[in-house]
């Protein structure tokens, strides 16, 4: 556990000490706050906080599709390209610990983005509003879950190739497909639509932003995260025999 923690903190520091991470965060914060300020607030009727929370959560969830693959593209691919991966693999750590540490490091940075939502609600309190903290908590939990799935998917994409750009592109495609596929299926294909809609992450965020915590959704997010991390570990292992 100690080893994992050390590796995770090292990964997180590596992200924080990269100027690119801050540029990405700055752009994401700016985009989200600008959308919130000029699109969500004017459309909130007489200032319905619930609507603001709901829309804010959806904007963050959508931006995560772009933000997280760009954040995770370098996690393993960079190590592979620079040749440090072999060194890491020969160190006394297990493959799954490496993958988990990479995941936790990136997830810690992604958290800086989705924590913007409770921060915006704090600003609402400062402005005399009285948000219902239950939906704020459930929306934050859902955004964390979505970020977990997308980060794991990004780490997997990064583990599949040594090219950062390719990893980023692959992560983007996979994230986009994972988030939007349930909504792109034609309504005629009812069975497929029903199956996919049970894993519709955007819908899960929408539900949570209303104040509902559904343990089946939480289980879906956690199991998908673990599955993608498992795939990433297998992919890392495959280097031993390729």
């Amino acid at each position: 556990m100690n080893r994992l923690w050390t590796l995770a903190v090292r990964e997180w520091r590596a992200h924080v000490h990269a100027p690119g991470t801050w540029v990405l965060l700055g752009l994401a914060w700016f985009w989200l706050a600008a959308m919130y300020c000029w699109q969500v607030l004017p459309a909130s009727g007489h200032g319905d906080i619930q609507y603001m929370l709901w829309q804010g959560a959806l904007h963050i969830a959508n931006l995560q599709i772009l933000f997280i693959p760009l954040l995770t593209m370098r996690t393993i691919a960079e190590e592979r390209r620079s040749g440090t991966l072999e060194m890491l693999l020969t160190a006394p750590v297990r493959d799954h610990e490496i993958v988990l540490a990479k995941f936790l490091g990136a997830f810690g940075v992604a958290a800086l983005m989705w924590m913007l939502l409770p921060f915006l609600m704090l600003l609402a309190v400062m402005s005399g509003g009285d948000p219902d903290w239950g939906p704020v908590a459930s929306a934050t939990l859902a955004l964390a879950g979505t970020a977990g799935v997308l980060t794991a998917l990004g780490v997997l994409a990064s583990a599949l190739t040594h090219n950062q750009l390719l990893a980023g592109f692959l992560g983007l495609i996979l994230s986009f497909a994972f988030m939007y596929l349930p909504r792109l299926v034609p309504s005629d294909w009812q069975t497929l639509q029903e199956v996919l809609s049970s894993g519709d992450l955007l819908q899960q965020v929408e539900e949570s932003a209303r104040g509902i915590v559904d343990l089946t959704n939480v289980a879906f997010q956690i199991s998908m995260t673990l599955l993608f991390l498992f795939f990433a570990t297998r992919s890392l292992e495959s280097r031993k025999w390729l």
């Binding site: 914060w29 706050a33 319905d48 619930q50 915006l120 402005s127």
Partner: peptide, 26 residues
């Protein structure tokens, strides 16, 4: 229905969210 004054809320969101936080990141 929980409400907040849009006019008074917009100000901190604009200053802190749109300007200060991104500037801090950059």
């Amino acid at each position: 229905v929980r409400l907040v004054s849009v006019a008074s809320y917009e100000k901190p969101v604009r200053w802190i969210g749109v300007i200060c936080l991104p500037l801090f990141a950059m």
